[in-house]
């Protein structure tokens, strides 16, 4: 019986030689139904073309490193099974909306800057000494923000967001979802410190609720929900008497 094979078309871009990215085809064995797109890329790098560049690390949907565009949809390549595409070819491109550094590697600098700008850590008005004990939370208090804390910063939501694609000044889905995660945390007192970034015209108000960010999220986070709810909350803070009371 003939060996099952699959065609992988991967973006190649060498900034020292190429003016623009191009697609290169690789015909590789599809030996195991459990093979994912990342396995195919690893096979190409190990056996066919060692110059292919891409990011990956954990291979189990936790690190968020291996996000790429697979047949037009942003996906973690470690969770995109070849069996779902075969016998069609699989086209692997870098994440959309980000500058390409080389092959399938994108420049993450803009995202990292935005992530830091929303201060994704617990802010206290006055830090308590360690001896004062831990900040305790009830399960209900954890449930308030649990969903938004699942974000792994894979940037798939940015690649799926046409608003970010059209205007990269937009703060973006993951950063706003993480800001909401901390704003909803009962231990946090940093809402006012995050507001200038979040309530900026290029923050929540830039979002027109396309919703594709929530569709592509591999961890079930709903950034679109976080953004719309933050719009409502910031409006209430502005409209209601004592809305800004801490």
């Amino acid at each position: 019986m003939a060996e099952k094979r699959i065609t992988i078309r991967a973006t190649r871009y060498d900034p020292e030689k190429d003016k623009a990215p191009r697609l290169q085809s690789y015909d590789i064995p599809f030996t195991d139904d459990a093979m994912v797109v990342l396995d195919a890329l690893n096979y190409i790098k190990a056996h066919v073309d060692g110059s292919l560049s891409y990011r990956w690390s954990c291979r189990m949907g936790i690190c968020g490193s291996c996000g790429m565009t697979v047949n037009g949809t942003p996906k973690l390549t470690c969770a995109a099974f070849l069996r779902d595409y075969w016998p069609r070819s699989v086209t692997v491109m870098p994440l959309s909306n980000f500058p390409i550094v080389r092959d399938l590697v994108v420049d993450m600098e803009d995202f990292m800057h935005k992530l830091k700008s929303i201060k994704p850590w617990i802010i206290r008005k006055q830090e308590l000494p360690l001896g004062a004990g831990e900040h305790r939370q009830t399960m209900d208090q954890i449930d308030e923000f649990r969903q938004f804390s699942q974000c792994i910063n894979c940037m798939l939501c940015y690649a799926a967001c046409p608003v970010y694609g059209l205007d990269d000044k937009f703060l973006g889905p993951a950063a706003i979802a993480l800001a909401r995660r901390y704003n909803l945390d009962s231990r946090d007192q940093g809402v006012k410190e995050r507001l200038p970034m979040i309530a900026d015209p290029e923050g929540i108000w830039e979002c027109s609720f396309v919703g594709e960010c929530s569709v592509v999220c591999p961890k079930g986070v709903d950034p679109a929900k976080a953004i719309q709810q933050t719009k409502l909350d910031t409006t209430m803070r502005f409209v209601l008497p004592y809305g800004n009371r801490e």
């Binding site: 871009y13 900034p15 990215p21």
Partner: peptide, 8 residues
């Protein structure tokens, strides 16, 4: 370190 920005 030159990057390529794809058109939308």
């Amino acid at each position: 370190t030159r990057t390529y920005r794809r058109p939308m």
